[in-house]
Amino acid sequence: MANTDIHPELRSAARFTPRKLIYPWTLPILRRLTGLQRPDNDGVEVLTLESGVGVRLYRPTGTATTTPALLWIHGGGYVLGTAAQDDVLCRRFVKELGITVASVDYRLAPEHPYPAPLEDCYDALQWLARLPGVDPDRIAIGGASAGGGLTAALALWARDHDGVKPVFQLLVYPMIDDRSVGSHLEDAGHRLWNPASNAFGWKAYLGGADPEVAAPARRTDLAGLPPAWLGVGTLDLFHDEDLDYAERLRAAGVPCQVHVVPGAFHGFDGIVAKADISTAFFYSQCDSLRESFGG
């Protein structure tokens, strides 16, 4: 692929963005670096649920009534990351929509493979619905990359279990298929995440689990899921699997808005957050969330 195939707003950043990031030998280093970061807890409630799951809670100011809520799930290939990494994004959702946002610190693979991370997200969802000031009938779930994969899995899990039923799922370039499907797997435009990293992440997450159950893209029955928004770039490793999933959602009768960003690689909106395409990507999510909340 020629450099010109990368979106003009992303070309400068692409030169300094690694094509691959997470491998077995880099994971301990990246985790140590993450542990050295000190999050800004100003205005954030840092909580530990009875189940032991950590949550970062962001509330709107000056709101006397109950608000809709978003359960946000961070990315990191199922093996890396913390809720604090998305502080800026969660605060943006609160400011733009006037909602409550809870970001969950789920357990990571390979130490905690499926279903542990998903169970943590489900526990956080149940807790969020009981939180004073939150409207339990207007709760959305969302996440990026592996967080998007957990969002898709959580939507399925919530459908199949008693408890809170999310009204919407926000799937930001979700990691949903362990088979790494598509004809573009070795595309030179990929950044941050490549097939080798994907294979490592999925192996760690699945452990001994049946992928037909654990990987959302392998699920055959998608009926009855909440409406969805799905966004992905054309240079994202997940492009093909994501668009296929969106089509299958629609075929199952689930409304799904798709936002494709030409020339965008994985995680582009976090790397070049102020680019016009990143801003449009964010506001597309906000518009869908606002509509799902009925406002």
Rank of each mutant, 00 (worst) to 15 (best):
L156H: 12
T67Q: 10
R138V: 01
P166Y: 03
V104P: 00
E291Q: 07
L71N: 09
T66G: 03
H266P: 11
E111Q: 15
S284A: 15
L170D: 13
N198I: 04
D42K: 14
T65Q: 14
A158H: 09
C90N: 14
R218A: 15
V44H: 03
V213K: 15
H239E: 05
P255G: 04
C121S: 11
G148M: 05
R19P: 00
K274E: 15
L249W: 02
G295H: 07
P115A: 02
E212Q: 14
A129G: 15
T82F: 01
R130N: 09
D135A: 15
G148C: 06
I29W: 15
W229K: 03
L131T: 10
L222H: 08
E241N: 04
L230K: 00
V260I: 13
N41D: 11
N3Q: 10
T65Y: 00
G81L: 05
L70V: 05
I22D: 00
F282G: 12
T279S: 14
Y173Q: 15
D276N: 13
H74A: 12
G163V: 08
S197Y: 01
L47H: 08
G43K: 12
G77Y: 02
A129M: 11
P262N: 06
H184P: 00
V261I: 11
G62F: 00
S12W: 02
V254G: 14
F16G: 07
E212D: 12
V254P: 05
M175P: 00
G142M: 10
A109Q: 07
A83N: 04
S12D: 14
G142L: 06
G149I: 11
P115M: 01
G189Q: 07
G98W: 01
L249G: 08
V46C: 12
L150P: 13
T151S: 13
W193N: 07
L36C: 13
G231D: 13
E241Q: 10
V164N: 14
E291A: 13
A13F: 14
P24G: 09
D276S: 13
A83L: 03
A223N: 05
L70M: 12
A64R: 10
R191V: 02
P117R: 06
A196S: 09
P60G: 06
A215G: 13
L230G: 10
L185T: 06
D287F: 00
E111F: 01
Y106M: 11
A264T: 05
R219H: 11
G143T: 15
D87Y: 00
K274M: 07
L125R: 09
A155I: 14
E119N: 12
G76V: 05
I141Q: 08
T67S: 10
A280Y: 02
P24N: 10
I99Y: 01
N3L: 06
C121W: 00
L49I: 08
Y23W: 09
I176A: 15
F168P: 01
G295I: 01
S12Q: 14
A273Q: 11
L225N: 05
I22E: 02
P8V: 10
A273V: 07
A275I: 07
A124Y: 01
E9L: 08
P262C: 03
N194V: 04
A64F: 00
A2T: 04
A124I: 14
L131Y: 02
